[in-house]
Amino acid sequence: MDEELHRIIRRAKRGDKEAYAQLVKDFKDPVYRYALGMLNDRMDAEDIAQEAFVKAYYSLPGLESEFAFSSWLFQIVSNLSKNRLKKRMRERNYYEEAEESTMAEPSDPSEKLSIEQSLARLSPEHREVILLHDVQGYRYEEIAQVTNVPLGTVKSRLFAARTALRNDLRKGELS
């Protein structure tokens, strides 16, 4: 992270709205992408991204160091996304909507599963590490901070996620 960005974060921390608008501009694409990857729905991703930026603004005074801003921001997005997924699960259990559960399945069983569909079928914990690593380009250390798990867990979880993703893709190939 460059010095310019740190200066903007410091200004935003003091309540400078102009500086915060700049931060939203700089981070909205990665934040939106991550939410989209987690939720697999544009409207929900937009919702969560907005909610995360609003929440982050009011929590900014509690941010200890401007160096930790991006992992701190992604921690907020991650928690909001997981809460949204849980809410969806509750609603799904309540209504028992069959059509929703088939959303990620191909209409034709012989059709090969796309990487997008397979990613959507991973557990949130597995999808999260894949997105943070492969899309956001985070190191294990940063992923550990965002997901609040030990470094060793990040390592084993990423391996498990890759194995699960590959197995799911292969299932499509074999049928």
Partner: peptide, 8 residues
Amino acid sequence: AQAPAHIE
């Protein structure tokens, strides 16, 4: 994938 412009 780009965030909608109105988010900001």
